[in-house]
């Protein structure tokens, strides 16, 4: 490989000046850290990964089809929520949210439209644990451990970015052809 002359000169300088080399390495590391911490959250259109562990769930035994549809529908719920909160579109919520969960999000979007605040989520995945499946199969309670990157923006200005692991208590109920999120409450870690 043929290298230009300045490349050889530059390499020589660096090797022969250890203080400069240390400063350069430190600055590069800082720059890399800065770049890494720069806001990079966007309204992702890909489905987040959702793992379901229903081993301890009862009293009803989860059906094969339900064990497939719960993670799928929960992933779609999070995707539609992230898009709705980023674009202030309440209509995106109807597909996978109902009841109190939907009312809360609709209220939040109405507030966002008034204040100019909006949220961007980058979803790094969910670990769902089944807590309760009603005997008649009409309600399921789950605990979710979600890895998220949340960015709060006021207009175009980023006012906060955080990488968090949040815990949710989720209540899902069956709709016509899917499971809907009826309640979504963030809880402190380790509770309940």
């Amino acid at each position: 490989m043929i290298r230009p002359a300045w490349y050889v000169r530059k390499m020589t300088n660096t090797i022969h000046n250890p203080i400069r080399r240390f400063a350069r390495i430190t600055a590069t590391t800082c720059l890399a850290l800065c770049l890494a911490s720069l806001p990079r959250v966007s309204a992702d259109t890909s489905l987040p990964t959702v793992e379901l562990n229903a081993e301890k769930m009862g009293p009803r035994q989860i059906e094969d089809l339900t064990s497939k549809s719960i993670p799928r529908d929960y992933a779609f719920a999070w995707l539609s929520m992230a898009q709705a909160l980023d674009t202030n579109r309440k209509d995106l919520l109807g597909g996978y949210f109902t009841g109190l969960a939907k009312e809360n999000l609709v209220q939040k979007i109405a507030d966002q439209q008034k204040t100019g605040i909006h949220l961007k989520y980058e979803d790094h995945g969910h670990k769902l644990e089944g807590l309760f499946y009603s005997p008649a199969g009409d309600a399921m309670q789950l605990r979710d451990q979600a890895a998220l990157e949340i960015q709060i923006l006021d207009g175009d200005k980023v006012i906060q970015t955080e990488q968090v692991t949040l815990h949710f208590i989720v209540l899902m109920t069956p709709g016509a052809d899917r499971w809907l999120v009826r309640d979504l409450e963030t809880i402190p870690e380790g509770k309940p």
Partner: peptide, 29 residues
């Protein structure tokens, strides 16, 4: 920013900020 709230207001940073009861009606973070 709460489960059902996105509130923004101008405040005097030297004084305490009052959070009204209706602003924290929904459980969550």
């Amino acid at each position: 920013i709460g489960p059902a709230e996105s509130i923004k207001r101008q405040v005097d940073l030297a004084n305490d900020i009052q959070i009204q009861s209706e602003e924290v009606e929904h459980v969550g973070r």
